[in-house]
Lab assay of single mutants.
Amino acid sequence: MFYPNSPQTSPQLTQIPYGQQYAMMQRQIQQPYHPFATTEPQARLYPYHYQGPIQQEQGGFITQQSTAASPQYVQMRVTPVDQSIMSGYPNQTANGSSSSSFNYNIHPQQQQQQQQQQQQLRHHAMPVGSVPLQDDRYRKQLIVNYLAPDVTSTDLHELFSRFGELDGARIIYDKQTNMSKGYGFVYFCHAEDAKEAVERMSGYEFHGKWLKVGYSTNPLNIVPSNSSPYVHAGSRGAAG
């Protein structure tokens, strides 16, 4: 039997160049792979992502010199942007860049009308829970959420009447099932009393439920100042 490094198959040491006398086997001759043993700084910083320098080929596509990437890492192929796409944008300079302001050559009167329309939209648009300043009635009506099913309009009136005089209180019921929808409205005579009720009743436990109280901004629920107070009856038909 002959071994790869046996004296019968191995040459004389004098015939082997210096430095390879003890590297006779194939696994010894093959050098191990060192990912950080390279002179390129990109490979030292990113050993798993770097795959060699990027070269520009004919046709405008950018390719990489090395083989496919590892399945664990996804390499994105980048193509140059066609400058003709950006030619339609206004205020574009000769080098292809555009300024931040756009001039669509709008007539001054049209621009003024658009600004007025935007101001009107901001004036009428009102986020949930906010209180408008032009109508004091919005500051007097509250919406009470997360009410228990057994709470009546009379219970709601008695709960909030300790903060001040009320114009009314009612629970909203479903017309088909005649069941409470879980929320109601309270109408105060003074805005200061309503503000105190919002601050003190939010998070209050009532009939096993934690109440959420806020201003009601729905104009359909506003009680006119010259109208008669609501009837605080315990029956659902009268309260709904």
Rank of each mutant, 00 (worst) to 15 (best):
L159C: 04
Q42M: 15
I85E: 06
S99L: 13
L142S: 10
M25T: 11
K140V: 01
L220G: 02
Y104R: 11
L142R: 09
Q109H: 06
F102T: 02
Y50L: 07
P11M: 09
K175P: 07
P11R: 01
Q31R: 06
G60L: 06
E199P: 14
C189S: 12
P7W: 15
Q176F: 04
F102L: 11
D136M: 01
S100P: 06
Q134P: 09
R200G: 06
V186P: 03
Q120L: 08
E165A: 12
Q31L: 13
Y18G: 01
Q141I: 08
G240S: 05
V81S: 03
Y50K: 06
P47E: 09
D174Q: 02
A194C: 08
T79F: 15
V81F: 15
K181H: 03
F188E: 15
G60Q: 08
G60V: 14
R27L: 14
Y3T: 02
I85N: 04
S98H: 11
R27C: 15
A68M: 05
G184Q: 09
L211R: 07
V186I: 08
S100A: 11
L133Q: 13
Y18K: 01
S202G: 12
P80R: 11
R77M: 15
I29G: 15
Y3D: 14
N95A: 02
E205D: 10
Q28W: 15
I62L: 04
L13A: 03
R137G: 09
Y73E: 12
S235M: 00
Q12A: 14
S87D: 15
H49F: 15
N5A: 13
M126Q: 11
H124M: 10
R139V: 00
P7D: 04
L121D: 00
P219K: 04
G214E: 14
Q20E: 02
D167Q: 07
I222F: 06
L156S: 12
N218S: 05
A239Y: 07
Q75M: 15
Q112F: 14
A37R: 06
I16M: 15
N91E: 11
H232Q: 08
S202P: 13
Y104T: 13
Q28S: 14
T9V: 02
I85V: 04
L166I: 11
D193W: 07
P35N: 09
G240F: 15
R122W: 00
Q117H: 08
G182D: 06
G129K: 12
G208D: 03
A148C: 10
N218P: 03
T38Y: 15
A191W: 00
E205G: 07
H123E: 14
Q42G: 11
S66P: 10
A68S: 03
A239N: 05
A233G: 11
M126P: 09
V78L: 12
N221E: 02
Q118R: 04
S202D: 00
A197K: 00
D150L: 07
P7H: 08
Y138S: 13
I143N: 13
F206Y: 03
Y73H: 13
S87N: 07
R137M: 01
T154N: 10
F185P: 11
V81N: 13
K195F: 09
E40M: 11
A43Y: 06
Y73R: 03
C189Y: 08
S66E: 12
Q64K: 06
N218R: 04
Y204S: 04
Q110E: 11
G19R: 10
M25L: 12
Y183V: 03
M24C: 10
L156E: 02
S216Q: 13
T9I: 05
L220R: 15
P90K: 08
S227V: 07
P127G: 06
G96R: 05
T152E: 10
Y183K: 02
F2H: 13
F163L: 03
V213R: 07
V151Y: 10
P229S: 08
A23K: 03
N105Y: 15
T217F: 02
F185Q: 14
R122K: 07
K195C: 07
R44E: 00
N218K: 00
N91H: 08
H157W: 01
S161N: 00
S130C: 09
E40K: 01
M179I: 07
G88D: 00
Q92H: 09
E196K: 14
V151C: 15
